[in-house]
């Protein structure tokens, strides 16, 4: 028996100011915020620049290309709602822009991956949510 949980882990795009991020993500585009005042690309995207408190930020599209910095295959202990996805691969990707982010690594096998390998952005559906993912280039 599983205790019902009230909250899904996936955010509701209509309950965040980052609605635009989730809309473009679902279209298969990886975007984030950029502060023109300090020429800083943020990750994760945000509503205020952590460097200068500027609230007038621009949305930019990221290259979606980078290298695999680290990865693991999760065999056990998935959070509620993801048990059926086991096993799955999580990786830290270093984008060509210099940003490091956590994502799912898909369309591959753990044994075929190596640190430093080129990867490209893709999305995988989970219900009506698009999971930010990367696959080998």
């Amino acid at each position: 028996m599983t205790t019902p949980h009230i909250f899904k882990l996936e955010p509701n795009p209509s309950e965040t100011k980052l609605k635009k991020f989730y809309e473009t993500l679902r279209e298969g585009r990886l975007t984030t915020t950029y502060c023109g005042k300090c020429s800083l690309t943020h990750w994760p995207p945000r509503m205020v620049c952590p460097n200068c408190m500027n609230e007038d930020l621009n949305w930019i599209e990221l290259s979606g290309k980078g290298r695999l910095y680290a990865f693991t295959e999760v065999m056990d202990g998935a959070p509620l709602g993801m048990e059926d996805e086991l096993p799955y691969i999580i990786g830290v990707v270093e984008l060509d822009e210099g940003i490091r982010l956590l994502a799912r690594i898909v369309d591959t096998k753990y044994g075929e991956l190596r640190i430093g390998q080129r990867v490209v952005f893709t999305i995988k559906p989970r219900g009506d949510f698009a999971v930010l993912s990367f696959r080998p280039e």
Binding site: L9, E10, P11, T72, V74, D76, G77, A78, P79, M82, E85, Y88, I90, L102, A103, R104, F129, V131, L132
Partner: peptide, 9 residues
């Protein structure tokens, strides 16, 4: 967390 990360991962 939405990517399914846990402490061991």
């Amino acid at each position: 967390s939405i990517h399914g990360i846990n402490a061991p991962a």
